[in-house]
Amino acid sequence: MAIAEAQLETWSQQGKTGQFTDTYNSIRGNLLDASAPYPLKDVEIHLQGSYGNDTNVWADSDVDIVLCHNGAFYYDITGMSQGEQDAFKGVFSTNAAYGYNEFKKDAEGFIGGLYNGVVPGKKALHIPGNNGRRDADVLVCQQFRRYYSYEPGVHGCHYGVAFYVNGIRVENFPKQHAEKCTAKHQATNQNFKRVVRIFKNMRNTMIAKGMLADKVAPSYFIEGMLSNVPNDKYVGSYQDMFVECFNWIVAADESKLTTGSGLHWLVRDNSSVCWSSANFRTFTAALKKFWET
């Protein structure tokens, strides 16, 4: 038995954004204060996650903020020829004097002095909400470049961010993710992000009902999963779109799916930036059961 169209319509709607905007602007202003110990000219701040991508639902609470140091960068040059790699290394032969470790130390100390109760997490610093300010997670990171061509003065690369978790570097592309999801939304008559919210609300409801464990299906992976679905599946009623998108996903070769940015595979085991095959299949199986019951 399908979920009622009226319920899907409700789930498709974006959650409130006013308080989130105030939270972001307030924290951003503090992070760019002249008293900050890091070089402000080399700092970039932007949103990522559900609020940054306009896929937030009513249950979303945390505001995800990126604090990125652009005065130095990590890189991946494995996609270039040996000659291009040699040319690159001839130009960038030394490490920056002020890099990620120095920036992270300065930023964490500064943020800890700005707010009470800051909690260092696995990836980000958690700032508890207070007096109308929502909870926020601040990811302290450094610019990352994935090169695909290089000649002195002329190069091609994808710009992202990088940070370390338990000694392992994590590389991601939040801007490309947001840009491609927005383009997908526009190409589907404004339906892509509505369907993302439906899938997210279904996930939240399943968690509340004990049908799905928490953290099996992060919003980032749901957005990425649905970004692979052809545009012609995003037509008709919400019931039609759910069925068409779901059927396409479960029939697809999961090893060929990409994240929203298109720069990582979506489903891979033992990867910090990919969805495990077990969790991907658990989520799709739970969706089928929830839809039918």
Results as ranks from 00 to 15, higher is better:
3 I>C: 04
7 Q>M: 14
9 E>V: 10
11 W>P: 06
15 G>V: 04
20 F>H: 11
20 F>C: 06
27 I>D: 07
31 L>R: 06
33 D>M: 07
37 P>R: 03
38 Y>V: 03
38 Y>P: 00
38 Y>L: 02
44 E>Y: 11
45 I>Q: 04
53 N>W: 00
53 N>C: 04
59 A>F: 12
59 A>T: 15
60 D>F: 02
64 D>G: 09
67 L>Y: 04
72 A>H: 00
78 T>V: 08
82 Q>M: 11
86 D>A: 13
87 A>R: 14
95 N>D: 15
96 A>V: 11
97 A>L: 11
98 Y>I: 13
98 Y>N: 02
99 G>K: 06
101 N>S: 13
101 N>V: 11
102 E>S: 14
104 K>C: 09
105 K>M: 04
106 D>Y: 11
108 E>W: 07
111 I>W: 09
113 G>N: 12
113 G>E: 03
117 G>V: 01
118 V>R: 03
128 P>R: 14
133 R>A: 14
134 R>A: 01
137 D>V: 05
139 L>D: 13
143 Q>Y: 03
152 P>T: 03
156 G>S: 05
161 V>E: 00
168 I>K: 13
170 V>M: 03
173 F>E: 02
174 P>M: 00
177 H>T: 09
179 E>P: 06
182 T>P: 01
186 Q>P: 05
191 N>T: 04
195 V>N: 07
197 R>E: 07
200 K>A: 06
205 T>Q: 15
205 T>F: 04
206 M>H: 12
207 I>W: 10
210 G>H: 07
211 M>L: 15
214 D>M: 03
216 V>T: 13
218 P>N: 07
221 F>V: 08
222 I>N: 05
229 V>P: 02
230 P>F: 05
233 K>D: 04
234 Y>K: 05
239 Q>I: 13
239 Q>S: 13
250 V>C: 04
253 D>M: 00
253 D>F: 01
254 E>Y: 08
254 E>V: 01
256 K>V: 10
257 L>C: 02
258 T>I: 02
260 G>L: 02
268 R>C: 06
270 N>P: 03
277 S>M: 08
278 A>R: 14
279 N>V: 12
280 F>V: 00
283 F>S: 00
284 T>S: 12
284 T>N: 12
284 T>D: 07
284 T>Y: 01
284 T>R: 03
285 A>Q: 14
288 K>S: 09
292 E>R: 05
293 T>G: 06
